[in-house]
Nucleic acid binder design. Sequence first.
DNA 1: TAAAACATACCGTCTGGACGGTTTTTATGC
DNA 2: GCATAAAAACCGTCCAGACGGTATGTTTTA
Lengths: 200, 200
Amino acid sequence: MMTKPQRKNNPDAVRARLLECAARLIVDHGLPALTLENVAREAGVSKGGLLHHYPGKTALIDGLFEEVVDWFDARVEDVLESDENRQARFSRAYLRVVAAIDMSVPEEKRLAVLMLMLSSDPHYCARWNQWVEARLQRHAETDLTPIARTLRLAADGLWLSDLGGGPDSHTPVRREILAFLETLDATGARTSSRPHEGGQ
Amino acid sequence: MMTKPQRKNNPDAVRARLLECAARLIVDHGLPALTLENVAREAGVSKGGLLHHYPGKTALIDGLFEEVVDWFDARVEDVLESDENRQARFSRAYLRVVAAIDMSVPEEKRLAVLMLMLSSDPHYCARWNQWVEARLQRHAETDLTPIARTLRLAADGLWLSDLGGGPDSHTPVRREILAFLETLDATGARTSSRPHEGGQ
DNA sequence: TAAAACATACCGTCTGGACGGTTTTTATGC
DNA sequence: GCATAAAAACCGTCCAGACGGTATGTTTTA
C-alpha cells in the first residue's frame, strides 16, 4: 500500500511542479513564455492556485532562482569533497558540474535557467556574484590563480554554449575540451601556483 | 557651410539612432524596457515613424542583431589580420576583441546586447551559432584544436562576466587572466596542435 | 470549524500594431 | 526651370489581446 494514497492535495508536490514547469518553459521557449497562465496550465493548476503558493511573479522567479542555485551549490560541494587534488578545487568542481550537465535530461535543463536569469536581470546577476565571491573567499588559498579563473570562465562558456546548442556543446568535442582543461589544470599547477591576494 | 543643411529628413540617421537607442535601452534597463514607444521616444520620433522604418518589433530587433554581429565581425577580422601567429588565429582574435571591450564606453556596450539576445532567444542563438560555425569552417586549419576552443569558451565567460559585473570583470584580474591565456596559447600550440575533423 | 488549498471570474494596464492623416522629398513631363 | 504627381518620411489615434494581479467563491485538510 502507498504511504499517502488518500491525500488528494499535495501542496509540496504542486510547488515543485510549478517550479519545474517554469524552468522548462523558459528553457524551451525563452523568457517571454514565462507567464503565470502558462506555468499554471503546464503544472495542471489554475492561475489562482499558482498565486496561492507564490504571491506574484517575482516570488515564483525568486523561488526558482534559489532552488537552482541550491541545486548547483550542492553538486559543486559534492564534487569538491571527492577530489584529493587541492589545486583549484572549487573551480575544477565548478567546471565538472557544468560539464556533466546533460541537456537531454530535463532535470538538468533547469541549470540553463540560471544562465538566462543571470544575463537578463542585473538583480539575479548580483546575487549570483555574491555566491561566487563567497565561495571564492572560502577557497581563497586554492582558487585565486589565473588557472582557476580560466577554468570557471571556460565553464561559463561551456554553459552558455549548452544553452544555445553551440558548436562546443556536442559530446565528442566537449569531451576533448574537458580533457584538455584537466591537463591544463595539472600543468598549470606547476607553472604558476602562487596565490595572489587583493590586486590593486 | 555644412554639406546638407537644407535637408530636413534624414532617414538613415533616424534608423541608426533607432538602433542605438534600442541597444541602450536594453543594456541600461533590461529587455522588458525595449518597447516601441520607449525606443521611439528616445530616438525622438513617433511610434508611427518607427514602424515606418521597421515594420514590427521583430524587424527592429533583427536589425539590431545584424548590426551588432557585423560590428563584432569587423573587429574580429581586423584583429585577425594583424596577427602573424597562425595558431588559433580566429579564436585568439575572438578573445582579444571581447577582452578589449570597455563597458564604460557606450559604443561598446552594445555588444552586451548580443549576449542578452543570445541567451534569451533560441532563434538568435541559432543565428549566432551559424556565424561561429562559418568562421570555424573558414579557419578549420587553425581553430579546431582544444586550445582554440578553450580560448573562445573563456572569452564567452569573460563576456558574461562583463555583462553582470562578476569578479572577473575587474581590470587587474582580467589583465592577469588575459596574460595567462596568451601564454597558454603559446605553450598549447606545441602540446597538441593536430586538427581533428568530424568526430563521431 | 478554521485554515489551507485550490478554482473562477473579473479588472486595469500595457503593448504591439493597424490606420488614416500630413509633410517632405523625389521623379516626371513640359 | 517649374508645375505636379507620386512616393517616402513621419505623426497621432485607436484598438484588440495579453498579462499580472485581485476578489470571491468552493473544496479539502487539520
